[in-house]
Design a binder for these strands. Structure first.
Lengths: 335, 335
DNA sequence: GTCCTCCGTCGAAGCGCTTCGACGCCTGGC
DNA sequence: GCCAGGCGTCGAAGCGCTTCGACGGAGGAC
């Protein structure tokens, strides 16, 4: 293994000079820097991560805790993770993958052993048991999602409440009077997953404000679940003309089910969704949707962490405003 | 921060004794061990990961390179990643997440800086550019999938060739004479992704052996793609009665498409798949399938790595035999 | 010309841990 | 009763890097 002293000798300088040339923490003459860089290239030098971490008390690694639970749409998680890794690399950091399963112990372990400098936690619940721990940790963290009490914590997410509102308002503007929310599987609500709850809040509030008749329907994330909900809606809400879907896997199956029951989209029924743009676009009837910006959330989360690591203050809450794209699945009620 | 010397003082022993009590690398009397453990508990001691890595030249971190490319079924990747993390934790290791995008430089970086002890590489292609690098690295690695030339490398995967064969043989036993493989999107074959190719090999070989008439059809991973292929098959192969699907996202859409074209499954058409058991079970008509054992592959990959890190020799190739489960989607041809 | 300052570099200390050699003591064999 | 050999423990030497204080020399101010 080639070490910093080898580089120093080869370049005719001291090890500390090599270190400063690398980190830029002290001025180094142009000529010396050149020699050092040449030596590094010729010897193929790579600083030892452990030694660096020990001496600088910075590991340049971020922890990312991903959810495994039922009812979470996997591609969204993956896209988010990839965005975190990609952004972290831009800041010269790597990403350690933790599973939800490891729980609080896992968080404490990687934080206390100085394996990581900072943490990103996904799938936050309203009353998440990890909140006190995150507050007490000596390392900065960012949560994806908003718990009820976010005091002293940094959170970021799509503004799901506004997203729910945007969908309803869009339908209201098109003249729809009876709307339904087809949501996540029941267990997601039982766990009080923050984002799912907030969609319901926004949906209901906006419907009430606009004087719409509304109802909420959790739905299993399977085609069979979608068919069940479709049949139930037709039976119980014959006047229904507007649907908001917040459940990625059943978006297409639900539309199929409606059509098989004789309802045309958007002719008889307007459908909007909260989901990744790619999904909304790839459905047979492209769906008017509020984008789920996983990549942006991941990127912003890393940037927040970097700011905190740099000692800057950051806003406690970052709510990304919903961005709605009209596609073929919505139409005026009389059209 | 509480360090090993604090623990040592508190327990009335030397730091090295604490270290040995922790690692078990030298005998420590029961009584001393108790005192050390008590001190650790009382002080809340956590060994510093960087210091440990520096002194022991072991970081206890594995690198996992996940694919991002089009045509890869994300839930399978995720399940695999989770299984790797979970298993690694059982061996007291953590997992660093790398994206394919970082490429060979990323691998070299984490290996050379001693950030990781070993590497797991997914989505191996027949002529993967990373092969020479992995051979030259001073750290052990395991590849998920088989390149053409695996000399000097450790590989593990489902035996996709045998899986393809098993599907055909199952259909042949049921009396089917004309079979088709509906495979991955074209780009997967263009890239020469190992596992996709091997399924084709096994499928074709077994069909030839059994004297079946067979054809292979790449298919876009969208419902529209499934419909296209279904229509094409009906048009071009009216005698078709057996289908093998190796493309997770379209399994259910393809069956839907067949039924909408008037073919009953399994009455008119028997369908088998190579996919995760959960997927096969959750389709409306549960599908006879060869399981894609991502969790097992992940676990075994980590175990292989641990053996290699321990200095033991491991087999270069580990092919997991296909395991087929009969479900409702296949029936005898005359039934 | 002298003094002060700042730039560029060096040397040494130390980050917190593991590991190696050494050493005392206790036990067992004869 | 004496020696050999473990067992259990200690002390010290690093692991490879960063960082702090120091220092020589060049340049500017007066």
């Amino acid at each position: 293994m080639v070490k910093i002293t080898d580089v120093a000798r080869h370049a005719g300088v001291s090890p500390s000079t090599v270190s400063y040339a690398l980190s830029g923490k002290r001025p180094i003459s142009e000529e010396t820097r050149q020699r050092v860089e040449a030596a590094i290239r010729e010897l193929g030098y790579r600083p030892h991560a452990g030694a660096r971490a020990l001496a600088s008390s910075r590991s340049n690694v971020l922890a990312l805790v991903v959810p495994l639970r039922a009812g979470i749409h996997v591609p969204v998680v993956m896209q988010f993770a990839v965005s975190v890794v990609t952004t972290a690399r831009r800041y010269d950091h790597d990403v350690l993958l933790l599973t939800q399963e490891e729980g609080e112990d896992g968080l404490r372990r990687v934080a206390d052993t100085a394996l990581v400098d900072a943490l990103i936690v996904m799938d936050v619940q309203l009353h998440d048991p990890r909140l006190p721990l995150l507050r007490s940790l000596e390392r900065p963290s960012v949560m994806i999602g908003f718990p009820s009490d976010a005091d002293g914590l940094t959170c970021i997410d799509l503004d799901f409440k506004a997203a729910g509102e945007a969908c309803v308002e869009h339908l209201a503007r098109l003249g729809h009077r009876v709307v339904a929310l087809v949501g996540s599987p029941p267990e997601v609500y039982v766990r009080q997953t923050a984002f799912a709850q907030r969609v319901v809040q926004g949906f209901t509030a906006a419907a009430d404000r606009s004087g719409l008749s509304s109802s909420v329907h959790p739905c299993e994330a399977t085609p069979a679940g979608a068919r069940l909900v479709a049949e139930q809606l037709l039976r119980e809400q014959p006047a229904l003309t507007g649907v908001v879907v917040h459940n990625e896997p059943i978006l297409e199956p639900l539309i199929d089910a409606f059509e098989q029951l004789g309802l045309r989209v958007p002719g008889d029924l307007s459908v909007t969704a909260i989901c990744p743009d790619e999904l909304a676009e790839s459905v047979r009837v492209p769906v008017t949707s509020v984008a789920l910006p996983s990549a942006e959330v991941g990127e912003r989360a890393v940037q927040l962490l970097m700011k905190k690591l740099g000692g800057s203050a950051v806003p406690e809450a970052t709510l990304l405003p919903p961005r709605m794209t009209e596609r073929a699945s919505t139409a005026p009620r009389d059209a």
